[in-house]
Design a protein around this nucleic acid. Sequence first.
RNA 1: AGCGGUAUCGUCUAGUGGUUAGGACGGGAGAUUCUCAUUCUCCAAACAGGGGUUCAAUUCCCCUUACCGCCGCCA
Length: 492
Amino acid sequence: MSEVRVRIAPSPSGNLHIGTARTALFNYLFAKKNNGKFVLRIEDTDAERTSQAYIDNIFDSLKALGLNWDEGPDVGGEYGPYTQSERFDIYPKYAQILLDKGFAYECFCTPEELEAEKAIATQNKKPYVYTKRCEHLTEEEKEKFRKEGRKPAIRFNISKAQRAFHDSSILKFNDMVKGELHVDTDLLGDFVIMKSNGTPTYNFAVVIDDMLMKISHIIRGEDHISNTFKQILIYEALGAEVPEFGHLGMILAPDRSKLSKRHGATAVSEFVEKGYLTEALINFVALLGWSPSDGVEIKTVDEIAKDFRIHDVSSSNSIFEYDKLNWMNSHYIKMLDIEDLKERLKPYLTKYDLSELSDAQYTRMVEVTREPLTILSDITDAVPYFFGEDVEIEPKAQTEVLDTEVAQDVLEEFARQAQGWEFEEENLHHKLEVFRGEYKEKGIKPKVTMWAIRAAVTGRTCGADMTAILAILGKERTLHRVRKAMKPAVKN
RNA sequence: AGCGGUAUCGUCUAGUGGUUAGGACGGGAGAUUCUCAUUCUCCAAACAGGGGUUCAAUUCCCCUUACCGCCGCCA
């Protein structure tokens, strides 16, 4: 069996899309599972929409996801270059072969003429197919067009190729995920393979590149199914071996439309900026279409690779639901090593002065605030009360807690007692327990007692473990905040 | 319009010619807790519709419907 070689071929007209990331993942998994090679090719034939920033983003995102490629623009490889714009001299040669073999012909139609043809078709409610008017141009006619300054495009002659290699007009292939797919090639129009400006079209460039790069299996989105038929014919016309194809269902937004900006993030880098872990992202996206044989959903890419079978991938579209991604992300955050988490959280804590905390205090703060985090950026709003002398009191904490008589009583008592406490966690834990106990005997629920302290110290009604908070803040700051919170009531 | 594809709880999915149709997320209820959260327990929730084939169809076939994709000198 010849070597398994797969590829991901993104077009750098935007940041790496989450859908492209999934396609890349499935290719990567397939390569891993079959001891194959995973290659990265940049399809930048459309100079207009290409930018270096996007190329960098694609590299960075793929790397961050752990989808490392064996061959690509940066690492090179036997079949380079891996950037289409650096391969422009290759395509005309193959176009010429097709021309020579009679599987392609020059087309001198102008955009306006084509436009007119299309208009007629739409008027008659007929699907538009190119009329082949340039198929049998004589040398004289071509010469005349050239004199007019017209530059020809090159079209692929579908029916000619189909007739040369198949019995009927029906072309079929066996898709690794969809099963047998077929189409009547008579319904396909002769498509352009080389534009009049001398650059290849997508359908031509992919085939040439995949052929030259010896790609054995092409796994991509099902939006490419109709291209596949055209591409197969090119392979055949060139006398090349046709690779295996596998078409994945698409990822849709919850409203079943294409996942776009208005649904939130679409680029991997946007998810990362928001605080999604790449481990969670990749795991989540793997579950869209694929399911583990042992039912355990949380898995590393390597574990998934071992269990991966392309033929078992679901062939239907799947909807991108944040609920599960969020759950999975929070799960991964919980699993993170504390030192690792401390580092990953730092970008989201820039508005605070971390130097106020010792490493031990920072560690403790992270330990007690990590639990409810869904995405890393949640930390930003979870910790303001750990910093600064004073604290901002939320309206709700003021009106529902601090303004009550009980709370004021608790605070007064707390301030008096805590004066003599040692602000060390174990001790605080014990003291607070006793403190709550005293109030409980007076008929005040522990919850209410603690609420008063929490509201005064953190300005909130909910948050991290109180013992830890007090220990981190220290006696001085705690009492300062408590006294500040009790002032108004004391005056009565 | 044409061509192609898809159809199991709200979502991601498992599964089978005969099953109490399973799991996960989300939802609901309860327990734990100083709050939120976590954790644990329990509950509700699906085979799109109609025809066949068959002793039997969620499973196989056909049709309908719905949804998705493609119809560029974009990729």
